[in-house]
Design a protein around this nucleic acid. Structure first.
Lengths: 215, 215, 215, 215
DNA sequence: TATGAATGAGTATTCATTCAT
DNA sequence: AATGAATGAATACTCATTCAT
């Protein structure tokens, strides 16, 4: 076969077929992830099992192993997606804003909103499987790293612009992270105590605290 | 039996026996709780099972059901103890101190120290079984309420003394709680990222933030 | 309660009940072992599974774990029994005989007969789970040791009586063991090649070889 | 196509292609067998699986079915190779030697050496899949038959030369086989009991026994 | 020639819980 | 007060094999 020649009809067919199967494969993979995600939402991390995922998509449990090496691989793929959405949410919230402090506020609000909107995912991302986030290497371009980088960049931007008083970017980032995570985490674990209204309050208070304390 | 009459010898015997048995009962109950606590420390919430608790104390699994209605009851009793110790730790740290802000700082440091010293208990208390804390009724004199009251009192004291600027005690308490919990929670879930050294740093930063922002 | 006093009716009843339950327990344990043994015979070592054992006795798989810690424990118990029967067979064959060489011959014939009568057990005992026999400590009074001791004693006796030429008892025992095992093992693995008739022949030849070579 | 006519250019091309593909086919077949053999060595008969073989050669499991009808077919092909090497080893050990008894001794030593050098293959050849050896038809020129014929020939030669006392060649061969197999088999199954040193001893004792008993 | 997709059957093991004694 | 017996449900995972392409 000449590499330069146009593909024959058979070749075109074959490639089409390959592409179709490839896309079908991606579809099923996606369906598995979706089902797994739903299951997390409904049953939480503890109630999550491969068998139930399989049942949900109407395939045999074995089939899952064609798409993911094992349970952890599936969970990690799920978390990759989740961090992707998380990072996107953060970026979408902060990108349009230029004022450094407003940017920071938007980041915080987006962070909390994500946590409250996807509490069980958040729980898995930051609590149940902290090891996943922990495994990330700084150099990587992975979603889990990217999410954190948005925070870091926003802080750095605020400091650089003089809106935030000078300080160690990493340390300040970590402090802000802890505050946001604390709020979300309490709200998720004790929704009756830390109701959405109280979250709104404490969010506001936290912002004031930060403005007063860090500017 | 007449409540007002003096107890007969038999009655006295019976009561003594009852007391002995009662105290024996309490002993075994305590042994169960201790074993359960140890198991939590060693295996975490997920690895915790009644069978292993039973094996550890040398009784049959069934016996546990004589002292606790079910797994959750045992866990809740355990959490009662844990909150008791937690509250005690907070009180011991704050009681000797009279300066309002120093008191607050001591509270925060004790909170974080407790979390890092008993990470698996902390995790169960505030993350895995937030429902337990949530069930508490404000009126109760339970440990879980008491712990939170220490925080509230310390904040109220600082405000009353003018050390902290006026504000809603509950709201400020919640904010402080969120900060402390955020630090501890991140440190527990991602110990390689949030190392003890970074905890110390962020703890310091948090204090500064609070001094600047709330005083 | 006075330790010296006669048991009360209740005590007698209780003990009777305990004994009954104890014996019932032993019965089920025995039933499990029997079913397991049958399963070995029918399916061989590879086809052996706890679930099938359970099904066979009409109990749930879980029940087996009440009697045996795990699969290996069951298998080892089974092998203990098998070595017990094996040792008994060897002893029953050799005990009545006083003539040293006749004793040795009887031993050999009993060994081979056992192997051919219980081929799948033999296979597990000496081939599949050689680790079990290997684990035995010389000092123990276990069946698996006892079996081998019969051989050793018989050899020692023959040497002591002058019927066998002097030599290292262990070495000679091992040689005889290898011969017997070789015959049995070939007969089990390739029954169509090493038919019972050929076993009889080779057994005879082996005896002659030994008489000529070792006396 | 006329068989007598000269091949056209196209035909020649076609045949070359067929040959190339044929040889490629043989190559992959060989790669499968090699990987399978390695896997046996590493995991033993029980740990052997087609999937792992496939993974090892970088092909899909399905591909193996293009070269072998099923798992057993692959194993049998493997055993053919193994018996081939086995027979070769025996022949190489005995061929150079002319003295009948020395030849016999060399055979025995080579047999045992092979078993100890390739214990897992030996186990499959003679224990796990005795059915393979058993299926062999005497008339065939297969390796598995050839191996046994070396033994038979050596015995026959020793008898014919008067070095071994007259007797049924098959019976004596079987006896010798049993002895060699017994030694190897015990050494493989219980390496801690039947250590290499003890194998050397028992090998020596066996030889002496045979010299004394069969010459 | 080679593979991707899929499955059904099977494995050992753990767990919380109930019931009768 | 304590236990022994028993179970049903669940889990992750592996395997040989088939089918359509």
């Amino acid at each position: 076969m000449n590499a330069a020649s146009k593909p024959t009809r058979v070749q075109r067919l074959s490639q089409a077929s390959r592409q179709r199967r490839e896309s079908e494969k991606q579809e099923l993979r996606h369906a598995i992830l979706q089902a797994a995600s739903d299951l997390f939402v409904e049953r939480g991390y503890e109630g999550f099992s491969l068998r139930q995922v399989a049942e949900r998509i109407g395939y045999s449990p074995t089939t899952i192993y064609l798409y993911f090496a094992d349970k952890d691989s599936l969970i990690f793929a799920l978390l990759d997606d989740a961090f992707d959405q998380f990072g996107t949410a953060l970026r979408q919230a902060t990108d349009p804003i230029t004022d450094p402090l407003a940017k920071l506020e938007a980041l915080g609000r987006a962070y909390v909103r994500f946590g409250l909107t996807h509490p069980l995912h958040y729980q898995v991302m930051f609590v149940m499987r902290g090891d996943f986030l922990q495994q990330a290497r700084a150099a990587e371009t992975e979603p889990r790293i990217a999410s954190f980088r948005v925070l870091r960049d926003t802080v750095a931007y605020a400091i650089a612009s003089g809106s935030l008083r000078p300080g160690d970017v990493d340390a300040i980032s970590l402090l802000l992270w802890a505050i946001m995570h604390g709020i979300v985490s309490l709200a998720i674990s004790m929704p009756l105590i830390v109701t959405p209204e109280r979250v709104a309050e404490v969010e506001q208070d936290a912002l004031m605290l930060i403005w007063r304390g860090l500017t």
